[in-house]
Computed example of a mutant assay.
Amino acid sequence: MGVEESRDDRIVAEFGDGHDVDGIAARYGITVAEVYAVVEREVGPSVPAPPGPYPVPGHYPPPAYAPPAHSAPPSAYAPPGYAPPGYAVPQAYQAPQPGTTLATTLTEWTDSDGAQFLLGQAIGVFGGRPFAEVRHVFWAGDPLGHELRGMLLALVRTGVLEWRGHPAEQFRWRRG
């Protein structure tokens, strides 16, 4: 019983510190729903916030923004030339060559967006398109991006991939 309580306490502490729920679930080998269940069991159900002193404006939430039709994305995504010590600066995410596998493309630590892109290419959902054409999937709360991330975390839970959360969420194929 003492081991279960300390595990639950750690889950609640990580949740309270603002850690990513998917990451907590991956670390403890449980589902996101189970993380929320542990937190609710230990802390209690969430209580809605009291109404604020000002009414919610009629235009809330704001309408979705659609970029102008004349602005095409760049040909490749090139992030700024910065990387934390010990990390290579990615020059651009290019579609892998036909016949390559996720195991051959994720040999080094790759940030979450890049890993999702490579997984999407490996299963054929992007059809060889470059990262610049599909990056909205990873950055705009797109359901496909959430599912690709969930697939990566499932591969972590089964031991196929390795995961680290700092300095940025990254994945790589498990070595050995």
Rank of each mutant, 00 (worst) to 15 (best):
A64S: 13
G124I: 10
G114E: 05
S6H: 14
R172G: 05
A69C: 09
G16N: 08
P45H: 12
V47T: 15
V134C: 00
R174A: 05
A140H: 11
I11P: 01
P62W: 08
E4N: 15
P73H: 08
G124A: 10
V12N: 03
P74R: 09
R164Y: 11
R7M: 11
Y60V: 04
R10P: 03
F138V: 02
R10F: 03
G86Y: 10
Y36W: 14
G29R: 07
Y28S: 00
T105C: 03
W139E: 13
V12S: 00
W163D: 00
Y82F: 10
T31I: 00
W173C: 07
L144A: 06
W173G: 01
A95I: 08
Y77V: 04
G159L: 05
H146S: 10
P98Y: 03
W139A: 14
W109Y: 08
A33Q: 14
T110Y: 04
P68I: 02
V32N: 04
D111F: 08
A83V: 07
P53F: 09
G18C: 00
F131H: 06
I123A: 11
L119N: 03
G120K: 02
Y77C: 04
R10G: 01
P50V: 10
G165E: 09
Q116C: 11
F117A: 03
E147R: 13
A76I: 12
V38A: 01
E5P: 06
G18V: 08
R164I: 14
P61A: 08
A26V: 02
E162A: 08
T31P: 00
S75C: 12
Y54W: 15
F15L: 07
D22W: 03
A83G: 07
D9I: 01
V125T: 07
L148I: 00
A140N: 14
Q170R: 14
E40H: 13
V21H: 03
I123F: 11
F117P: 02
V21L: 05
M1L: 15
E169Y: 15
E42H: 07
I123K: 10
